[in-house]
Structure formats: C-alpha cells, structure tokens
Design a protein around this nucleic acid. Structure first.
Lengths: 153, 153
DNA sequence: ATAAAACCTATCAAAAAAGTCGGAATTAAA
DNA sequence: TTTAATTCCGACTTTTTTGATAGGTTTTAT
C-alpha cells in the first residue's frame, strides 16, 4: 500500500514543471538535473503524464514540457492514478463484470468499492497547487523526495 | 496503490476464522481447504497475524487459531497493515528523522503525513465484524477474493 | 508413543518495478 | 540546409518484491 518511486519522481517532476514553466517549456534535462533524477527514467514517467493530458510538450530546440491546465485544476489523485495505476485496494473493485464470477453474490465487492471511493477522495482533495505553494515556501524542492543531498547552492 | 494477494488471502483467512471459531480453534488445514488456498503460503500470513496479536494459536492436536479479540475490535486497517506493511504513500512519512535529511525543511513531509492519516482513517473505519456480517449474508465466502470457482455447495 | 497440529527457515520461481540504451522524429536557428 | 536540441519510442537488462514450496522442529492431546 505504498506508492512506488514512479509517483515520487513523477510528482517531483510535475512540481518542478509547475514552478519553472513561467519562462516557457521546461526541458526534461533541466528537471532531471535540478531534481537529481535519471533523465532516461523520467522520460517514461513524463510520457505517461503527457498521454494522460496533464502536461503538454513542445518538440525541437527550446522545447520542453508545460502543464496542460493550471495547477489548481490538477488533483493529486489524477497524477497518482497516471503514475501508479488506479488507486484500488483489490483488482476486482475497478473491473467490470469480468474477473468476478458473480458480482452480485460477491459480498466483498461493494465493500472494496466503497473503500476505493473514499481513498480516492482523500487523494482528489489535494491539488498540484497545494504542493507548489508548499514548495515555494522553501528554497529547494529537493530533500525527502529526491535522493540528492539537496546541498546545491 | 493496490493491495497484494497477501491482503486478499490473509483477509479471507481471518474472516473464515471469525466465522468458524465457535467450535474451538480452527486448524489452518481447514481454512486452506475451505478457501482453496495453499496451506503452506497461508502459514506465513497467519504467522504475521499471530505475531501482531490479532489472532492466537493453540498448538498440538485439536489446535488451531482463533481471534485474539472480538471481530468488532479488529479494524481493517490493523489487518492490512500487518499483511501489507504500513499504509503510507511514501516511505519517509512513517519514518522517524532518519532517512529524511531535514524533516522541518522537507516541505512534502507534512503533506504526506496528513494524507497517510486520512487514508488510514478510511481503513480503520471498518472492522472485521463488518466483513463477517456481509459474509454471513451469503452461503460461501469464496468468490471474488479467492481464485476458486466457488462452486462447492 | 503417536499423530495432529503450529512453527520456523531456507530456497526457488515468477512477476513487477526500476533503470538503461540506441535511435528515430521534430523543429528552431545558424 | 545542415546542425543540434529536444521530444519520443521501444527493446532490453537488472534489481526488488511477491508468491509459493519444502523440509524439518517443536508442542501436546490422546
């Protein structure tokens, strides 16, 4: 029931993006350098965020990424679901009929479904903007989330 | 952000236990047979539940397992945390100072901590008794959760 | 004694996650 | 119109976690 590094890295990246996009699209290289993450690996995560239309890209020189919507319209839940897959306690609760022999007779299905909804609400109640606000409060968004020593400067 | 089969199997086992313990300690063999799970594998899960003092055991012939407390005093959260590890979005939110270079300067720490608390509340708001009540409503607790075809009857 | 059970630990296999790599497509600018 | 900066794609490898098995040891009612 933990989030993987995909979420940690991906979230770091999108926060970095939100903070640095004022001067135009932010190249992945810069994000990777600032956050001390593997650019190659970030590529996959950012690709997923783009396909989910949370961010957009500009190709070619001076290209990079930017948010597809203002940060207050991007929920934490939306980001995490992209990076981590559906937030679901057990698989069957987000499946349709298949994979469950008799949905109506499965006493546990509704139970999980309720749980899933509530957990998602917890995540959806927060937005990227909340994170950006907190991040601005500090000099650097390195630290707990990244593995860097955060001592640049 | 999914639960593993540890949770599914372990939960099945403890529900089975809650339902069948009236006639004395329930041997693992019976649970494994009823739920169509590997007895060897269940051993590990049940061992963890015992060490966490959610269930207790009687050794020797006619031995088996029984709940350490009434089912309404065993929260879903407690069970899941035993089987799955702490319900935590990122590792640092349940660690002490170590692993986090500067807790006070880590802008994201409090954020995750709040999230963790809320997610745990969702799980802790449900008890084993809720599950048992639902299960009694049906003939068998096989079905979605187990991989058996649930056609024994 | 015997046998039924919990209990323990090592090992293995399979799956998922994490990370790397080489190159193709795009495009601004020299 | 070449160059170089960038996104984009997909195959691959490595590492970690999960799921599962197996053999042996206690414990204890009968």
């Amino acid at each position: 029931m933990k989030l993987s590094t995909r979420s940690r890295y991906g979230l770091l990246a999108i926060i970095d993006l939100a903070i640095n996009q004022e001067k135009g699209p932010v190249p992945l290289r810069e994000i990777a350098t600032r956050q001390n993450l593997s650019e190659n690996y970030l590529e996959h995560l950012v690709g997923a965020l783009r396909r989910a239309e949370l961010i957009q890209s500009v190709r070619g020189p001076a290209g990079g990424y930017y948010l597809a919507r203002p940060p207050e319209e991007i929920s934490l839940g939306a980001i995490i679901r992209v990076l981590e897959g559906p937030i679901a306690p057990v698989e069957c609760s987000h499946l349709d009929e298949e994979g469950c022999l008799s949905p109506e007779d499965c006493f546990i299905r509704g139970f999980w479904e309720d749980l899933r909804v509530e957990v998602n609400q917890v995540f959806d109640a927060r937005t990227l903007n909340d994170l950006v606000q907190k991040a601005r409060y500090f000099k650097s968004i390195s630290g707990c989330l990244s593995s860097s020593k955060g001592e640049e400067e």
